[in-house]
Write a protein that binds this DNA or RNA. Structure first.
Length: 285
DNA sequence: ATTAAACACCGCCATG
DNA sequence: GGCATGGCGGTGTTTA
């Protein structure tokens, strides 16, 4: 609980990805026995989920026999080929996608060029392929189609990750529970700075005493929680002063200071000049 | 790892 | 009334 004025529940996203990600196309089909594609190199990601039959996927010269329930992934810049079995050719759905966040997304669910196949793909994951295609074909609200089909593909990848939990890169690379909690606290500050934040409540919410929390936070970030919060608020205040016409009072309110006079004093300590002067100087170059 | 105690300072308000 | 000053209780940090 952060405020005395009301009770609420808060969930903060501590795993934000700075990523662009979009679906290019999606399809489903059944090649004839022995049909082969490649060896070739593409410049996008192409993921296939086998729903029946069998075939051979080759990535970087390494063979990966695939059958129902297997999902294999082609990576941009990595040579591959794949071929349907002669007597029992596979059927599969596929989706091509691109964007800077794609690699990280796949790594999160344990898929990489060194480990390009995930097994035990669920029926649910498979259904998302169909929903993706339907969104593209029906195109009911064209301006929403990109959002929708990319969302379905993400849901499909999530389902894929959940069906191979052992390979999920969990903890997002954190080396310890402490690190995870400290990062969570920093994320709370970064997203909630516009509201009153008591360091003690924040410490409580992750199960630490304020004294110990202050120590581990400072060890990790090089500044105390309070300093960190103030830096977030002041940097945002500078941005607002420069890029908006908000009054000083409104800027103060926007960065979590209820008392504009007090905000001005703090700002002066921070930047060496009062907010109004800061705005004037930055505006005239 | 945790906390009590001491210390520092913040945030707010009364006062002039 | 607007604004500086001082002071107080509580919050945050440091020490042990």
């Amino acid at each position: 609980v952060i405020s005395d004025h009301y009770e609420f529940e808060l969930a903060v996203n501590a795993h934000r990805m700075q990523s662009e990600f979009y679906l290019m196309f999606s399809g489903a089909g059944k090649p004839i026995g022995g049909h082969k594609i490649g060896t070739a190199i593409y410049d996008y990601y192409l993921i296939h989920t086998v729903t029946a039959g069998e075939g051979l996927f080759v990535c970087n010269d390494a063979p990966y026999p695939c059958r129902e329930g297997d999902t294999f992934c082609i990576f941009p810049g990595v040579p591959f080929s794949y071929q349907a079995d002669k007597s029992n050719p596979w059927e599969y759905s596929w989706a091509g996608f691109s964007g800077s966040g794609s690699g990280e997304l796949l790594r999160l669910i344990g898929v990489s060029a060194e480990r390009p196949v995930a097994s035990h793909t669920t029926e649910q994951a498979f259904q998302y392929y169909g929903m993706t295609r339907r969104a593209l074909l029906e195109n009911e609200y064209p301006s929403l189609t990109d959002l929708e089909c990319s969302a379905y593909l993400k849901l499909m990848l999530i389902a894929l990750g959940k069906s191979n939990p052992a390979h999920i890169a969990d903890g997002a690379g954190d080396r310890s529970e402490t690190e995870r909690l400290v990062k969570y606290a920093a994320r709370v500050i970064k997203t909630q700075y516009a509201n009153p934040i008591a360091i003690e409540s924040l410490a409580d919410s992750i199960g630490y005493h304020r004294v110990y929390f202050s120590k581990i936070f400072t060890d990790y970030y090089g500044k105390s929680p309070k300093q960190y919060l103030k830096a977030v608020r002041m940097e945002q205040a500078e941005l607002l002063l420069m890029s908006t016409a908000l009054s000083i009072e409104q800027v103060a309110e926007s960065v979590g200071y209820g008392d504009p006079l007090y905000f001005s004093k703090q700002f002066q300590k921070w930047s060496g000049m009062p907010p109004s002067e800061y705005r004037r100087k930055k505006r005239q170059g």
